[in-house]
Amino acid sequence: MNERVQPVYLEEKLEEIRADGHLEYRSKSLPTWCPGCGYFSMVEGLTTALKRLEIDSKDTVVVSGIGCASRFPFFVNTYGFHTLHGRVLPVATGVKIGNDALTVVAVGGDGDAFAIGGGHIPHAARRNVNLTYLVFDNGIYGLTKGQTSPTSALGFKTSSTPYENRDAPLHPLMMLLSYGASWVGQAYAGRQHHLADMITQAVSHQGFSFLRVLSPCVTFDKTNNTYANLNTTVRDLPDDHDNSNLMAAMNQASRDDHPALGLYYKEDRETLEQVMKATASRSVKTGTGRADKQ
């Protein structure tokens, strides 16, 4: 039976949604993004994930940089830190080291992440800081009103590339895979159920988890990352994809004409916090230090 013609009864639906509980993770204030913005999906996704994992709001910190995505902490009912452009990962790392009982979620757009902040990602990834980095990738600069971003498509005309963008876009997933991120996934704002599942997995992962979320900018991108285009181009990772196989992951990640959604790669590795703890305990055991030198 076609579900479009099935009647839906509002009070039953509302009961279902309230019982689900994720609304409690929203703040009181309505998001100020452009109506239609893909980032709305992210609020749904993260709040659903936190509820599912039963992570207490007070133990969660959401850190953001600059850009449209940076408003995110204002719309969720958690601790938030709205920092400087591109410097989200260093701040988030500091938060995590300060108190590793916290669940730390760093959020940012593609500009914040891969342009000015590009220098920070490899280091957060290889250190395997136990935090989740959600990159809302819309392939455009929204807050500065529509210039190309590192993930803008070739041929994209923006206010800064009036004669077409000729800079090849980055491959964030391949970058992150090669940077050594221990959890790399991809989701799409137009499929918020899947998105919520992926955020749930990413947050529950022990280590640096990187989730790229394809998210249309409805105001400045009418040609590339639109809902209409993405709806037809995205695919699921094959059922038999082995997410412990880095090369298989690279192979899937390289096919950006039909971006695949799902978990590309996952490995269990010591986190920065674990390394710090281990180093601390090793230093006690080996007794290296001042006494030695004397």
């Binding site: 591109g86 000015i116 500065t144 009103k145 210039q147 190309t148 206010s159 800064s160 009036p162």
Partner: peptide, 26 residues
């Protein structure tokens, strides 16, 4: 903001004049 429009205008105006325009990463 508020310098962006200088860049945007030059992005339009310079190439036809043989100028070199680049939006850098920072």
């Amino acid at each position: 903001t508020p310098a962006t429009s200088i860049m945007e205008r030059l992005a339009v105006e310079m190439p036809p004049r043989g100028g070199k325009f680049l939006q850098t990463e920072d």
